[in-house]
Simulated scan of single mutants.
Amino acid sequence: MKPTTVIAATLIAVGLGYVLWSAVWQRSAEQSQPVLEAGALVNVLLPESLSPEAQLGKRGFDAKCAACHGRNAAGRDGVAPPLVHIIYEPGHHGDESFQRAAALGVRAHHWRFGDMPPVTGVTSSDVAKITAYIRALQRTNGIN
């Protein structure tokens, strides 16, 4: 076989390999990137699974919190902040701050959304489960 044929065949093989690798990598990257929902303030990656407590918390969050804080705690533009955000990491806003926010409301201090009213119809046990859900979302998104 001529050296030019070997070189041409090698270049073709490398080119095809690159095209295939790039197509697979691009598809994989697209699948791992969440799509920012309309009105959401942050992208939120979802955990592969939730503990039983966090599963109950998701239900509670969807019923009592999502209307303002958005689906999967991604926030809602002009309404309420995302809870999957470094500001709400456990070292800055511990679990008790979620209990107090639900029971007493919150005066605006980190964001320009206005005050949060108390949340009616949730018990401290409900809030603990909702917090477990929020913490699971935060961990999945690198907020520990």
Rank of each mutant, 00 (worst) to 15 (best):
P34T: 02
W25T: 10
I87M: 05
S124E: 14
V42T: 10
V44N: 11
D95A: 15
R76W: 01
D77K: 13
V24H: 11
A74H: 05
Q33I: 08
V35C: 01
L56S: 13
I134E: 02
S51E: 02
Q31S: 11
L11T: 07
R107T: 15
L104A: 11
I87P: 00
A74W: 00
G75A: 10
G78W: 06
E96I: 15
R100V: 15
R71S: 11
D95H: 09
P90R: 15
A108F: 01
S22Y: 07
M1Q: 10
R76K: 14
P47C: 04
A136I: 03
S22R: 14
I130Y: 00
D126C: 04
L45P: 03
H109E: 12
P90I: 00
N141A: 04
W21R: 11
V119T: 15
S32P: 01
G70M: 09
K58L: 14
F113L: 07
K2S: 15
V106C: 01
S124L: 07
S32I: 03
E30H: 09
P82L: 04
H110C: 03
G94K: 11
P3C: 00
G78C: 07
D126K: 01
A128K: 15
L50D: 02
D115Y: 06
A74V: 02
L41T: 12
L83Y: 09
R27H: 09
H85P: 06
A80P: 05
C68R: 05
A29V: 08
L20K: 13
A128W: 06
A103V: 05
A103M: 11
S51Y: 02
K64Y: 12
I87H: 06
G70H: 08
G57W: 07
V6F: 12
K58Y: 08
A13S: 13
V119L: 14
A38K: 14
T120L: 12
P3W: 04
Q26I: 07
T10P: 00
G105V: 07
D126H: 08
I7K: 11
D62T: 03
N43T: 14
Q55E: 14
N144I: 06
R112A: 10
Y88W: 15
N43G: 07
L104H: 13
L46E: 09
L56K: 15
C68F: 04
R27A: 13
Q138F: 02
S97A: 13
S125L: 09
G142W: 06
I12H: 01
C68T: 02
A29S: 12
H85V: 04
A13N: 04
T4K: 10
D95K: 14
V19D: 00
Q26F: 08
K2H: 08
R135Q: 02
G94L: 01
M1E: 10
G121P: 10
T5H: 09
V122W: 00
T140H: 08
Q31G: 04
S124Q: 14
I86C: 00
